[in-house]
Simulated scan of single mutants.
Amino acid sequence: MEGMPQNTPKTVEEVFMDFRGRRAGLIKALTIDVENFYQQCDPEKENLCLYGLPNETWEVNLPVEEVPPELPEPALGINFARDGMQEKDWLSLVAVHSDSWLLAVAFYFGARFGFNKSDRKKLFQMINDLPSVFEVLNGNTKQSKDHPGTHNSSSKIKSSGKSRQSENHTSKSVKMPMPLKEDESGGEEEDEDEEQGLTLCGACGTNYAADEFWICCDVCEKWFHGKCVRITPAKAEHIKQYKCPSCSNKRTRV
């Protein structure tokens, strides 16, 4: 099976890295590459599965023939329901099964290499610190609108540069933590930094970092790494209304 890593993870940290890579691939399939993923899930084809790979990529493929398989298998036949339900509901259902599969693979490695109680607990805590694929897909993560004190509603771009307002596009600005008043304590500044760190990329699901360029979708209001959606700071300054790949690809399906 192509999803089997060349160097099978044997420690908690290695299993978590494998989990995170597969998760990133699945999130990419259901958000950034959603149109490509949709087209590959042709109901006329045989039973298909969505695999997340350790190198942060994904593939739609037939299940393996071996019984039992080398790794737990994802949900079988996801393509058959594609045209029988609303696209959003279908993607959400695939996301839920993807989350279940990710956990199955991670704890399969744990069982295979004899993780003890503390190892399993450590692995679960590391996994649980990341939002699920379903949460990322449906925006059920702590985004900018959850922290009005940190993310101004008129700010759609943020990076490590100084706060500024574009002369030509007043709806866009580079976003940094809100300045503190002179009588505010250093503890409040730490709280704001912590809140900003809770912002999660709508594509890869990782946390905000001050040295990275981010942009917010004007439709779904999710934040994205510029690199994840292929938007540079210079390009963003000339965008009057930014739509993320998922919102851009939305269309009515019968």
Rank of each mutant, 00 (worst) to 15 (best):
L93D: 15
E167A: 14
V96S: 11
V67F: 11
C247D: 02
Q165D: 09
N116R: 15
R112H: 12
D193K: 13
T232Y: 00
K227I: 11
E46N: 09
D89F: 12
K222R: 14
M1D: 13
G21H: 05
K142G: 02
F37C: 14
G187F: 10
S185V: 06
I27M: 14
G21D: 03
P177L: 13
A81L: 13
R120G: 14
K10A: 06
S132A: 08
F115N: 11
E237R: 13
E189F: 07
L91A: 14
N152V: 02
G77Y: 07
K250L: 04
A106L: 06
Q196P: 00
G84L: 14
F224P: 02
K250T: 05
N36G: 09
V15W: 01
V96G: 03
F213V: 06
C244F: 04
K250I: 01
S98Y: 06
P5G: 09
S159C: 13
P148C: 07
E13T: 10
D42E: 09
P131A: 04
N7S: 12
A29G: 08
S92K: 14
N249E: 08
T141G: 00
Y108K: 12
V67L: 08
C247S: 02
F134V: 07
K117M: 15
T170Y: 04
E192I: 13
D83I: 01
N140P: 00
L103D: 10
T57R: 08
C49Q: 14
P131Q: 04
L62C: 09
E14W: 00
E65L: 12
E194C: 02
Q125S: 15
N47R: 09
S92C: 09
M85C: 13
F19P: 01
F109I: 06
K88W: 08
K121Q: 15
E66H: 04
F113T: 13
V254L: 04
N55C: 11
D211I: 07
E44H: 05
E135L: 02
Y51Q: 09
P63L: 08
V133E: 06
K240E: 11
T11Q: 03
D42W: 03
H225L: 05
V60K: 03
G84S: 14
S166V: 04
T232M: 00
L62V: 13
N168F: 12
G161P: 00
I231T: 04
V67S: 13
E2N: 13
V96P: 01
V229C: 04
D99K: 10
V67P: 01
L62D: 10
T170G: 11
D183G: 01
W90K: 10
C247K: 03
C204L: 03
G84C: 11
M85Q: 15
F19C: 01
V219Y: 05
L123H: 08
Y108E: 11
G25Y: 03
E184Y: 02
L48D: 07
M4E: 12
N116V: 14
T252K: 03
A29M: 04
R22F: 02
E13R: 07
T8N: 07
P72A: 02
G205T: 07
T206S: 09
N140Q: 15
N61C: 11
I239C: 01
Q39L: 11
T8E: 15
K162V: 10
S159E: 08
P68R: 02
F107E: 05
A75M: 12
M126G: 03
G197Q: 11
C216G: 00
D146S: 13
